[in-house]
């Protein structure tokens, strides 16, 4: 008779193993790998550790995905060292404030985060460059809002030099702006990607469609689909590669399913107006109270 494994002990063991793996990854190695074989192979092992990297969200709505991607990179870059996060106050208002239980769910212990809240872009840059110079930090996440005038080529060059000097991976997270010239080593655009469904069509692990916009090593623009696996503390692309076209088809299939004249609306449905009457909307008036 096989003894029943204790799920908590297993989870603990997994975490210990993940931590041990992170600890054994030598800090001297100058690269942060993604853990996704296809991606790492294309990038020649990963992205430079002591450098500035930019993560763009094409639309404000994708900022949560871009943030998740940046958190994943920071986890892989930081090992067990603290992560400093600089955030402009406006970001909290636009996309919600950082929620520590959500960070735990992505595999980052919120106790390791130092959060600096800055009122304006100048404060963000100042705190960011101060932090990027600190070699004791594992990663620095800098999150200004919009396109501040102060964040020009000189400012990004300064951040880049600070990161090169200290070895702290510096990630500049930007929303709602188009890609700008900068001194960053790599520039990524991250959008949300429909996840692989769990049982009963539940949303699965966070998935991203990432595009490499700029690479100092000279790689051309390329797109990958990756998933963040918390238990292994790594990105994964195998599932998306294997399914290939099937994965690519999935979102459009869902779109069909959710479109107004498709299956769901034949079910018992009712609309609930929130702060204004739904009838004012227009699009959904014709599908109200079909059930």
């Amino acid at each position: 008779m096989q003894p029943q494994p204790d799920p908590f002990a297993l989870a603990d063991l997994r975490r210990h193993l993940a931590e041990a793996a992170l600890r054994s990854a030598p800090a001297a190695v100058g690269q942060v790998s993604f853990g996704a074989s296809g991606l790492d192979a294309a990038l020649g092992g990963g992205i430079a550790r002591a450098a500035l990297h930019e993560v763009y969200a094409p639309a404000t709505a994708d900022l949560a995905a871009a943030t998740g991607f940046a958190v994943g990179l920071a986890i892989r870059a930081a090992g067990l060292r603290p992560i400093l996060w600089v955030r402009q106050d406006v970001v909290d208002a636009e996309t919600g404030r950082l929620y520590p239980p959500g960070l735990t769910e992505l595999g980052l212990d919120p106790g390791r985060i130092l959060l600096v809240r800055a009122r304006d872009a100048e404060g963000v840059l100042r705190a960011g460059s101060e932090a990027a110079r600190c070699s004791a930090l594992g990663a620095v996440l800098i999150e200004p809002w919009g396109q501040p005038r102060r964040l020009d080529l000189t400012a990004s060059r300064r951040l880049s030099l600070a990161a090169e000097g200290s070895g702290a991976t510096t990630l500049l997270l930007r929303a709602g702006v188009s890609s700008q010239p900068s001194a960053a080593s790599t520039r990524w655009q991250v959008a949300a990607l429909p996840s692989r469904a769990q049982e009963a069509n539940a949303p699965g692990d966070p998935a991203f469609r990432i595009t490499l916009l700029r690479h100092r090593g000279g790689l051309g623009e390329r797109e990958w689909r990756v998933e963040w696996c918390r238990d292994r503390q790594s990105f994964q692309d195998s599932e998306f590669r294997e399914q290939g076209a099937a994965t690519g088809r999935q979102p459009s299939a869902n779109e069909d399913r959710a479109s107004p004249d498709a299956a769901p609306l034949s079910r018992n449905v009712v609309s609930f107006p929130a702060d204004r009457p739904a009838a004012a909307g227009g699009e959904d008036t014709d599908i109200r109270r079909t059930g």
Partner: peptide, 15 residues
Amino acid sequence: WPAPEPHEPPTRPLQ
């Protein structure tokens, strides 16, 4: 911090 369930996708939002 409460440990997340292994093999389960995140149940709490990031923001």
